[in-house]
Structure formats: C-alpha cells, structure tokens
Lab assay of single mutants.
Amino acid sequence: MASQGTKRSYEQMETDGERQNATEIRASVGKMIDGIGRFYIQMCTELKLSDYEGRLIQNSLTIERMVLSAFDERRNKYLEEHPSAGKDPKKTGGPIYKRVDRKWMRELVLYDKEEIRRIWRQANNGDDATAGLTHMMIWHSNLNDTTYQRTRALVRTGMDPRMCSLMQGSTLPRRSGAAGAAVKGVGTMVMELIRMIKRGINDRNFWRGENGRKTRSAYERMCNILKGKFQTAAQRAMMDQVRESRNPGNAEIEDLIFLARSALILRGSVAHKSCLPACVYGPAVASGYDFEKEGYSLVGIDPFKLLQNSQVYSLIRPNENPAHKSQLVWMACNSAAFEDLRVLSFIRGTKVSPRGKLSTRGVQIASNENMDAMESSTLELRSRYWAIRTRSGGNTNQQRASAGQISVQPAFSVQRNLPFDKPTIMAAFTGNTEGRTSDMRAEIIRMMEGAKPEEMSFQGRGVFELSDERAANPIVPSFDMSNEGSYFFGDNAEEYDN
C-alpha cells in the first residue's frame, strides 16, 4: 500500500510504541512475548500442572481467558453494579484439565481477579502490559475465525453469508486497541457500523446529549479505520460520505453494504499476525530463551520457528480426527482463516481442507461434555516452508469459486491468482447506482469489472525454506488448481455463540 510509510507498523501498534527502528520493534515485541511466557509459567505453578498438562491447549485457553477477564475493567465495573446470582464479580476462573488415573478430569478453578492481575503485572515488570493482553485477544479471535462461520451475524446486519472472507476479527472485544483495529476485516468494521446506525434509528437519543457526542466521535473513528483499509480513492470518498452524514440511517447502511461487497474484489488491507497460545510461549521462556534479547516478529519467520520446536497437546472428542484438529489450530496460529487453501497447503506441506470436510468441533470443551471418553493427542503445528504475512489485500483475480465463501483475504505475501467468483459478486451490483453516491458507485463498479483474471497478485513473492531466515531465496510455489480455494466452501461450520 502506498501510504505504508505514514502508518505505524503493526509491531508498533502491538507494543504501543512511538516510531521505533526494526531492532527496537523486535525487542519490544519480544518483551511482550516474554511477559506472556513468564505469566503462563507462574500460572502453571499456581495450578500445580504437570509439564504435559501445561502444554494442553484447553488449559492455555482457560488461563488466557482468566487474565483477560481480570483486566476487563468495563465488564468488571458492570458486574459490580449489576450483581447477578451466583456470579462473584471479583473472581474469575474456568475449567482446568488434569490427568488422573490414566483419565482426563475437569476441575473448575476460581481465583481472585486481583490475584491474577498481581501475577500478570509481576510477570511483566510491574506494568499492565496491555500489548500482551491484546495479543491474547487476537489469538482467540484468530481461533474463532478458523472455527466458526459468522453466517447468522452477517444475515442479521443485512449482509450476504458468502462475504465471510471479510469477517476477520469479528469476535475481537471493543477494547483491543490499535492492534485489534489493524486485524479487523472490512466486513467486521461494516458490521460494527451498521449495528451502531441501527441503534440510532431505533433509539432517538442515541446521537443526542453528552453521551451522543461520545457516540458520534466513536462512529467517526470507526469510519476512519474502515476508510484506511480501502485502497481505492472511490471507496475512500464513499467512506467520507458515510462519516460526514448528519443523521446516519438506511442510506448509510446501503452504502456500507455496497462497500463491503466491493471489497470482495477491490480488497481492503487487513493486517495478519501470528499470535500463538500462551502454552507455546511459556515452555520456550522456561527453556531459557530470551525473546527480548533475541527479538521477535509476528509477521516473519519467528512464529514458524517457534511452532517448529513446540509440543502442544489437545483434548480430542471420541469421533474427532486429531489431524483435522491440528489443521484448525495451525490455521489459527498463522492467522489464515480466509487465505486461499492452495497457498496454505503449499506452505504447510500437507493438504489443507475446507472447514466442512474437517471432523472436528471447536477447541474448547463445553462444561456439560462427558470427560470419560476424552483422549488427548499432539497437535501437528509444523510447516514445510515459511512466508511473510501481508497486510495488503493483493490485486484481484477471477477463479472458480464456491457456493460458500466467494473470495479470499490473503494472509501471506505469496504470488498467486486470487480466487473470487466474479459473476456471483457482480450480480449483486445491478441497477442500484442512484442517489448521492452514484458517481462513486459507478466508478467502483467500473474498477471491479476491469479486474483481470490473468493478473498475478504479489508478483514474484515466494515462500522460503525454514533454514532461509533472511528470506534470501524465494520459492514461487505451484498450486494444484483442481483443489478448492475457499475454506468455508459450501460450508456447515458451527455458528459462533458468545
């Protein structure tokens, strides 16, 4: 993207840094990872977990959730003011799984939030270390993106479920800051804005008074975040219109849905970061690795190297396929839920299948599930090659597409044709070009129609051997075009429920 120079890199967003050079960025990201790792080690000690239990991804998720809940100030305040039966607002906890007599047992633990905050700050040299908290939120978000298709949420806001490739980060909490905003897809931002506008339509006082002023500035800020994701002048001009509207209503909703559809071809720039579970960072720190000293990046080879040398386990339900569970977590670790499966298959070195073909449910185990038949197995999170994460949407291309997802959002900077089903997408653009945004709409449609099938995206960008740390010898991959490109292809993934 041309304006790259004016933006802070995501590592800076990730670490609240002012302008830093590459070495400083690597050190501050490393410091953040160190903090998460030290916190995780301490929690495993508190909970008396064995090494194996500490490497269980379900335990990692519970521990991450506990610290996120302990620092969720708004919710904590709300819980104190609106006490609900049987919930102690000062405590947080969740299921911890232990191996007892050759069987997995679930144990519900409860801790004072104050105590968890103390352990977290102690692991982070006394700081609140917001960057580390956001990092864990993005890992949870990436896992949700890989596990669930947001059909219901899309339909509720009037969008087409086939636009799911635009929904990265749709389950990120509001408090995820600049680093969170960077990884949100165009569809996620559109959905947040539509929800806001709908509230304004239904509630006369939404934009009024002292609160209304705050609401208005939040609305304009979200519009600017979305505008910054678009790469064409016409899309940005249309966002200006939406932002400046005196009284946002149905016309703005129409414009936003139009823009979301246009992003299936004229893709937005959305950041991709490899955020790993805390149970990967903990053992690495415990083994003596100093992330701050060595430096770390979320968008280069580092996460690949770390996963190459990590042992992570997962509980497996009786009829689940461990290899499929591994694929789910591998995609989440690489922030690749909406990437082209052919690119992923090449990088991973084994075939990556669409969601609907995987015999696996989510990673988390519900409290009512029976533990008797639970097994555990090693997650295979290694890769054959590594590639640089991208934040450009890439230019655009036609490809055989599917009944489910009709476009992709690249996660890796790797040369390819970008699949999208042009006739299906263009069919949504018939007729409606009147109104105050008509010239911009016409211009956007013209650009979409001009998108050429034979153009290559990320020209000359390749993948790298894991021994090639400096990215000196790019390998331009070859793809098996007979395979499906979309992950949520004609899909039956479970729906995400809060």
Rank of each mutant, 00 (worst) to 15 (best):
K90D: 01
K293G: 14
S407V: 01
G393C: 08
T130I: 02
S176L: 01
T171L: 06
G212F: 07
R261E: 09
Q149Y: 07
R117T: 09
V109R: 04
P83G: 14
P283A: 15
R204P: 01
S176E: 04
Q399P: 13
F479T: 08
V408T: 15
G362S: 01
E449D: 13
D255T: 05
R389N: 09
K273S: 05
V463K: 07
R389W: 10
P283W: 11
V299P: 06
K273D: 04
E14D: 14
P318Q: 11
N334H: 15
E220L: 02
I63K: 06
E107P: 02
D255C: 03
A337F: 04
F304M: 14
R26T: 02
N473K: 11
S392T: 05
T15Q: 05
S269A: 15
L108N: 02
E244C: 04
Q231E: 08
I301R: 15
T424M: 08
N21R: 13
A129C: 07
S486A: 02
M159T: 06
D16N: 09
L306P: 07
Y52I: 03
L172Y: 01
L79V: 12
E495C: 01
M167D: 01
T350K: 14
V463L: 10
S314T: 14
N498R: 15
G94K: 10
K98R: 15
K357T: 07
T15D: 00
E210N: 11
L266I: 15
W330H: 05
F420H: 15
S9I: 12
S84H: 11
R441S: 12
L193E: 07
P283Q: 14
E64D: 12
E454S: 12
I194D: 12
L358Q: 05
L154G: 01
R152P: 06
D112S: 09
R221W: 10
L259P: 06
F488K: 01
V408W: 02
L61I: 14
P423V: 13
T146I: 03
Y281F: 10
N250M: 13
A401H: 07
S478N: 00
S269F: 09
A451S: 00
A373G: 05
G282W: 08
Q168R: 07
C279S: 08
R384A: 06
E107S: 12
P283M: 14
G5A: 15
L172G: 01
A131R: 02
V343P: 02
V285Y: 11
A401P: 08
I406Q: 12
L307A: 10
F39S: 07
P453N: 13
R348V: 07
E375W: 09
R152E: 05
G268I: 09
S376K: 09
N370E: 13
K325M: 10
S176H: 03
R156D: 02
L68N: 14
I57P: 09
M481R: 15
Q327R: 04
L381Y: 02
T378M: 11
A401Y: 01
T350Y: 00
M1G: 10
D34W: 01
L381C: 10
G300M: 08
N124Q: 13
K31M: 12
E454Y: 12
M136D: 00
L341A: 05
G300T: 03
I257P: 00
K103P: 00
F291L: 12
E80S: 14
T430C: 06
